[in-house]
């Protein structure tokens, strides 16, 4: 089967073809400054997608990522004044703990992950509304620049967001390729029952995967809050769909086990190019959601491993 051999290469072929099409019709698109700007803008989304990769890699899903990012924008805006740079640690810890909670509920209480993360997302949303008093908040501009200004500047034309993304990719790649945790996650994704039968503490690794997803969603929220210099309980709404799309078009299937961090990098770039091309071809921003919804269905249909699903529920 040729198509089967081609399948792992489809994501980057798609990316190259898309870039070629857009670059051909709009030469300005390929200017380095334009490409860098485009990549810089997509970084918060990318970080969220990076986290989701771990949840999807083990065959689960994290629908709380968006609420988590929302909550963190609020936490960051509220506590920046009193905690200074430590607020970043606090935010990431909050994301990590709530993610752990999702993982605990999923593995120990046998609640399917799409329900448990939806429920934890509801909790995060409540916290965000409570802390913000249901208003949009602003950070103190001077303090933001002093504490987190380094996150959003440019050095030699390279947006700093890209450097943050590169560091996170390196860390995640290290986890995926060079640690026992990465191996274990692959085993769980490839076949949970077999992993459990070979003596792996599946529950612990799954909880960790959800915790990583939560922590990265929190970092995405933090960066987003710094970029916008403020936060609100619904400010990051609209992130979840493209983030899931990024993971899936990158080639990590909903059934888990294959794909990974590098795939999500490619997937996010595909999402970025689709977005940019929609602007260029003057497709209304209001149609984006429809387009991404359809892309999502196509991506799942192409990538999902049907051999793993005995019955499709």
């Amino acid at each position: 089967m040729d198509i089967q051999r081609l399948k792992p290469h489809l994501p980057w072929i798609t990316l190259v073809v898309l870039v070629a099409i857009v670059g051909f019709t709009d030469p300005g698109f390929l200017r380095p400054s334009n490409l860098l700007g485009l990549a810089g803008d997509i970084v918060p989304l990318f970080i969220m997608a990076l986290g989701l990769t771990f949840a999807i890699y083990i065959g689960g899903i994290d629908l709380s990522a968006q609420s988590m990012a929302n909550m963190v924008t609020v936490i960051a805006s509220v506590y920046l004044a009193s905690m200074g740079a430590w607020v970043a640690v606090f935010c990431v810890a909050a994301g990590f703990l709530l993610g752990m909670l999702s993982g605990y509920v999923t593995t120990r209480l046998f609640v399917p992950s799409f329900i448990s993360t939806l429920a934890i997302g509801g909790v995060a949303f409540s916290i965000a509304q409570w802390l913000s008093g249901q208003r949009a908040l602003n950070m103190d501009a001077v303090q933001r620049n002093e504490t987190f200004g380094w996150m959003i500047g440019r050095t030699w034309g390279v947006p700093h967001e890209l450097l943050i993304a590169a560091v996170l990719v390196a860390i995640c790649l290290f986890i995926e390729r060079r640690t026992t945790l990465g191996r274990a996650l692959k085993a769980v994704g490839a076949g949970e029952l077999a992993a459990a039968a070979s003596g792996l503490n599946v529950a612990r690794y799954k909880i960790l995967a959800f915790a990583i997803s939560g922590a990265l969603a929190a970092i995405a929220g933090l960066l987003f809050a710094v970029k916008l210099s403020g936060g609100a309980p619904t400010i990051a709404n609209g992130f979840l769909l493209p983030a899931i799309v990024a993971v899936l078009v990158g080639g990590t299937p909903l059934t888990g086990g294959v794909g990974g961090v590098v795939n999500t990098v490619v997937g996010t770039l595909i999402v970025a190019v689709i977005r940019a091309s929609m602007l260029y071809f003057e497709i209304d921003a209001t149609r984006q959601q429809m387009v991404f919804g359809i892309v999502l269905i196509v991506a799942i249909a192409l990538t999902i491993d049907r051999a793993k699903l005995r019955t499709v529920k």
Partner: peptide, 24 residues
């Protein structure tokens, strides 16, 4: 059913399409 996609994901995606159509 026909594309054999788990229902939670198929319907979530279709929901996004529906909201998109309403915005449109």
């Amino acid at each position: 059913v026909k594309l054999r996609i788990p229902s939670f994901m198929a319907s979530l995606a279709m929901g996004f399409v529906g909201t998109g159509a309403a915005i449109l």
